[in-house]
Amino acid sequence: MKKTIYLVFALIIMLPFSAFAVDGTKLLQEIDRNLSPESYESYRKLINIEPDGRKKEFTLFTVKKGLDKVASVFLAPASEKGRSTLRLGDNMWLHIPNVGKPIRITSLQSVVGGVFNNADILQLDYAAEYDVLAVKEEGGEYLLLLKAKSKSVAYDQLKIRADKAKRLPAKIECLTETGMLIKTLYFKNVKDFGGGIVRPAVIETDSPLYKGYKSVMIMVQIKKRMLKDEVFSLTFMPNLESLR
């Protein structure tokens, strides 16, 4: 009964996405590649902004390889420095230097607090985690409706509004299985990072679950880099900063 209700609900959501004008999967893969090379290194800053304007900032060095390997290490503030996170597919770990050993964490938790959760921070390609259910063209934009490939993905559904010409996302709504909005990501300030990477430098997010709070991710540097698979392992986590 529950499944039928979800199916009907999904069909209702899909109604406006009447026809496949383009190959949705190919379009999603293009969006992924425009956001980042398949394997790269990057520097990012995360800012949590409270309703009264107070901010808390984190700086991260991140490396990614292929479809399912991402690792990050915190460079600032001092209280977080050296903390590292690793994602291999659906598996995620956090290594805190004082505590020593990596502990498993889940995609819905957040190592930084605020609106971004671990899945947002250790983002894989959208095409790796989601199937395209429908694509709709609306003026200068594509509207993509995505469905998670498995239950282990943080958000069951995504609605992506992407710029038609640049094939870059402008806004992504993250929804539960029942269609409840968890958070909205706003992609802003498209910038040339060199090496053919032109992508939004700022991702803002807000959530009806955190009224008045906002989190921002600023991409400072991103460039292609191919690393060995061994780097993406629990054993290597304490040494991630040596890759800089």
């Binding site: 300030n189 910038k191 700022v202 921002v216």
Partner: peptide, 12 residues
């Protein structure tokens, strides 16, 4: 004219 600074006042 980085919008990260100009528009949103995000600095790095």
């Amino acid at each position: 004219p980085s919008a990260t600074k100009a528009e949103e006042n995000y600095t790095f």
